[in-house]
């Protein structure tokens, strides 16, 4: 497997490098779940692991982001996420209020920083 991407072409790369390594987790989940009850303690634990892992992905997207987002100062990204969460709680757990306030704070902060 020392082949390079240029040698295998975009569609074969999509199947071998994009689809299969990604889909393996869904299929493995399907296999593992056989015979498990939704109220089993294992499933409760897995649910906590899934939530913590998702939170980790979100922290990485906000903090160690790459591309267009990385060009915006870190404190603008963290501040906008905090504004979004505060607006969510202030607006009695309204997701739309939280997202709108977070994105608004982000755009305003980035604009004021001359982005």
């Amino acid at each position: 497997m020392s082949a390079t991407m240029a040698e295998i072409g975009p569609y074969l790369a999509l199947i071998l490098v994009g689809f299969l390594p990604n889909e393996v987790w869904r299929v493995l989940g399907l296999v593992l779940v056989r015979g498990l009850d939704e109220r089993s303690q294992f499933i409760v634990w897995v649910r906590a692991v899934a939530t913590a892992m998702l939170a980790g992905v979100l922290a990485q997207l906000i903090l160690a982001s790459s591309g267009a987002l990385a060009a915006v100062p870190l404190w603008v990204r963290i501040g906008a996420a905090a504004v979004g969460l505060l607006a969510f709680f202030a607006a009695r757990r309204s997701v739309f209020a939280g997202v709108a306030a977070g994105v608004g704070a982000f755009v305003l902060g980035a604009y004021l920083m001359g982005y």
Partner: peptide
């Protein structure tokens, strides 16, 4: 990897 626990849950 996160796809595994969400499918299992």
């Amino acid at each position: 990897v996160r796809l595994l626990p969400i499918v299992v849950a």
